[in-house]
Each structure stands twice: as C-alpha cells, then as structure tokens.
Amino acid sequence: MPAKLSSVAAKAPARKIEGLFGPKGGVRPDRYPPEGYVRHSAESATIDILADTWTYLIIREGFFGARRFAEFQRKLAIPRATLSKRLERLQKNGIFKRTGKPGRHKQYQLTERGRDVYPITLGMMWFGDKWMCDGTPPLALFHKTCRSWFSARVVWRETGEPVQASDIRIRIPKDYWIPRPKTAPRHRRSSWDGSVQGRRPCSVERMLSIVGDRWTFLVLQELFHGNHRFDDFINALLIAPSVLSGRLINLQRAGFIEKNEELGGYHLTKMGLDSYGPMILMKVWGEKWVVRGERSNFDFVHPSGGIVTPVAVCSSCSNLLSARDVSYVCNYVVPD
C-alpha cells in the first residue's frame, strides 16, 4: 500500500520553543555561529556525497535502468576515468552495489540508500521544469499508484501543506554547533562550471549546471539560514574569498540571488526560494543515511507547535513517491 499523508494538521498545542525562528520567531539563533564553532548539518553531509554533477547524473542513469559500466559511459558520454572514480565513490558511500558472477560483466545496482535519493531528484526536476525549461518538460511522469500523470510537490508530511521557504520555522538543539576545525577541510575539485553535460535534455542537469558543486550548495544553505553578507559567508563556511565571489556571481547571473543595497547583502529571488524544496530533502536523506542520529539536527516546526518533515508527493493523489511507483515518457529522442 502506498504511504499516505495525514489530512489533518499537527495537533500539538502551541507553545514557546527554545531556539525557534520564523515569521514570529524573533532573532534567528541558527544564523551566526558562536565564536570558535561552525554549523553541524545533515544537509552538508549529504552535499559532501552528492553535490557533484557527474555523480548525480550517474545516479540519474541508475534510475533510468543503466547497470553496466559501458551503459553509463554511452548514455552520459563521460570519460572512462571519471566514471570509474565516481562509481568507486558511490559504492564506498553505499549508493550503488556491484553485482555479477566471475567472468561476466559486472553490474552496478542502486541500493535502498541510493533509491532514497529519488525524492531529491524529483524535487530538482520540478525546479528545473519550472524555472529552467523552455516549452515542454523533457519527461512526463506517470504515477502507477493513482494512474495519473503528475509533477512532484514538496510538502510537510504531517499536514500536507506545501513547503515554502518564507514560512519556515525551526528549532535548534543545544549541541547544534560543533567546534571549528583547526585547519579548513580540503575537498575534492568538482566539475561545477556548467560544462558537464550528459546526452539527455534533463531538468535536473539544468539545475545542477548552476548549483552542482559543494560550495554553491553551501552558499545557498547559508542564505536559507538567514545570512546575506559576504563576511558572514566567509565566517560560516571557511571559504576562500575568491571562491565565494565566483559562486555569488554565478548565482546572480542565473537568477537565484540578487544584491540589494537597501536591505544589505545578497538575497534570494523567488527562483532562489523555490530551490529550498530539493535542498531540505537533502537534509532528510542525510539524517536517515549519513548522520544516523550521531548528533541532533535542527527540527522544522509547524505554527501549531508540532514537528514536521518535508517529503515529495504526487500532485494528483498526494501519496509519497518512490522510484518503483513511477514510470515516464521521454519527450526527446533517447540516446543510443
């Protein structure tokens, strides 16, 4: 049976919540890290695994049914060395498992952990279809459960209400902040500049052409946590000024943010605010598969006082979505 949403809003009585911010929450306690501390974030942990364009496109091809190394290479036109390294990382992180008998072609199959990336993919597809697609979207999605064509919606599981970044209220735990590392962490170089392209006209790929690297995702994360000024990004992320400048310029050019002299600093546009759905689905995935309860993370709080969780649902029947329940029709010529 498909998972259903509750049709009734959370019933917990309204109460004062320590560390709450939102439309009526006053000063945001999650905005500035205490001196000597940095943000602990399941979303950041997810970004470290997934926020690379080639990585995400390989996972996408897994959802399209690719299993063999040659299939991934042919469908993506990806260099063999790049594909080999990404598949190795995806196996190490439990997204794919390698199967096959000795002497035969090995296959790469998505694990349960990998299949759980599907809601994030649907969220990115919705964003790309809305903001970065001219004309007919590349894919038409069909939900087998309700036998309807649909698009994904990101809603609160407990209430069914759409998630809107401007209405977000959160509570942070006492151990939310972690000690700042003595040296800035080193991260692998990622193909971020939009030159990474598969062979499909893909709305997910269009979104990733702008935000498909770790630093860009983290800058967006800070904007959603209420930071707007250049120095605030530097202090929160330990990012080099030249790297930050490049990311902000590209986000401006793409229409995600704008510089507002009256308000001060950089602010999300309506387009940028819509990217919040896929971003917070990354948090949900990270809490389930990466952090796994090792530390507390922040909670989303409904105005009634109840804790709520973002999920991707079918626009036709409001049921939760999984890759097994969705088929599709390509509105383009499928690459050989």
Rank of each mutant, 00 (worst) to 15 (best):
Q107M: 07
I239G: 09
R31M: 14
D175T: 12
I280F: 06
R199Y: 01
R180H: 03
E88R: 15
G265D: 03
E71N: 09
R147G: 08
G194K: 04
A14P: 01
L237Y: 03
H267E: 10
D134K: 13
Q164F: 05
V334H: 00
D325S: 14
L244A: 14
E71H: 11
V301Y: 03
R67F: 06
Y176F: 15
K288F: 00
P119G: 05
E287M: 12
S275I: 10
I210P: 03
L263T: 03
G212L: 13
W149G: 09
M125Y: 12
L268W: 08
V243D: 02
V313M: 04
L87G: 02
S209C: 09
S316C: 01
R67L: 11
R98Q: 14
E205Y: 07
N331Y: 04
L281K: 01
C133G: 01
H267S: 10
R253W: 00
M125T: 15
L76F: 11
H267Y: 12
V291F: 01
R188P: 00
D336K: 01
G272S: 04
P162I: 01
R180Y: 00
P138E: 08
C330H: 06
G264R: 04
K270Y: 02
P303G: 06
Q164E: 12
I17S: 08
R80H: 07
A312P: 02
Y108Q: 02
L122I: 06
T136K: 14
G26Y: 09
K130L: 03
R153H: 14
R171K: 06
M132A: 04
S191L: 00
S327V: 14
V27F: 09
Y56N: 13
E205L: 13
I172C: 01
V291I: 13
R157M: 02
P278T: 03
Q252G: 00
E71Y: 09
T309A: 06
P335W: 06
H228N: 15
A184H: 03
G198T: 13
N297C: 14
V311S: 07
K144S: 03
E43Y: 09
F230P: 06
A45E: 15
E61L: 11
W131C: 07
D232V: 01
D30T: 05
D325F: 04
T145D: 13
G265L: 04
E18Q: 10
Y37V: 00
T121A: 14
R229V: 10
F230E: 14
Q197R: 15
R60S: 12
L238V: 05
Y56F: 13
V326C: 08
V329S: 10
N319Q: 15
K182I: 11
R229W: 12
V313F: 02
T111G: 05
S190M: 04
R180S: 06
R31F: 08
I59M: 12
G198F: 11
R169T: 11
S41D: 09
E88L: 13
V326R: 07
R153I: 08
V311I: 12
V243C: 05
E261W: 07
T159G: 11
I178W: 09
P79H: 12
Y266V: 04
N331K: 08
L320I: 05
P179N: 08
F69G: 11
I307N: 02
